[in-house]
């Protein structure tokens, strides 16, 4: 069972993704900011991380760098929104493997995850 870490400060969003992925049989772990995500990554070693960019405490980009430092093979998908083009590029350069744009379609999220798990 693949484990997915969902990182977003928005609870509603986390709930939506979590529901969607649980229905597909994934095991879900959640964090509501970047710092917690890094800590959890170290503890639960998720197969894929889906992480928001804009978050309090520690933003997604910083968390991504920390996670990549912990585990260079970490598979991180950034959750992003319109208007974040340059941040997304930086995320990819920092080792993010993919990004999905909010509001996202189910297929897009599932596709991105299954690609990384393939």
């Amino acid at each position: 069972m693949a484990k997915i870490l969902i990182v977003d400060d928005a609870e509603f969003l986390r709930m939506r993704i979590s529901k969607m992925l649980t229905a597909e049989g994934y095991e879900i772990v959640e964090a509501d900011n970047g710092a917690k995500a890094v800590e959890l990554y170290n503890q639960v070693h998720p197969d894929v991380v889906m992480m928001d960019i804009t978050m309090p405490e520690m933003d997604g980009l910083t968390a991504l760098k920390h996670i990549k430092a912990l585990d260079p093979k970490a598979k991180v998908i950034m959750l992003t929104a319109l208007g974040q083009e340059s941040v997304v590029l930086e995320a990819i350069k920092s080792g993010a493997r993919d990004f999905v744009v909010k509001p996202f379609e189910r297929e897009r999220v599932l596709g991105a995850i299954s690609k990384l798990l393939a």
């Binding site: 069972m1 994934y26 197969d47 912990l70 585990d71």
Partner: peptide, 12 residues
């Protein structure tokens, strides 16, 4: 996804 998922997470 579960069929394709690696049993051991990367780096762990």
């Amino acid at each position: 996804p579960q069929a394709a998922a690696p049993a051991v997470p990367a780096g762990a």
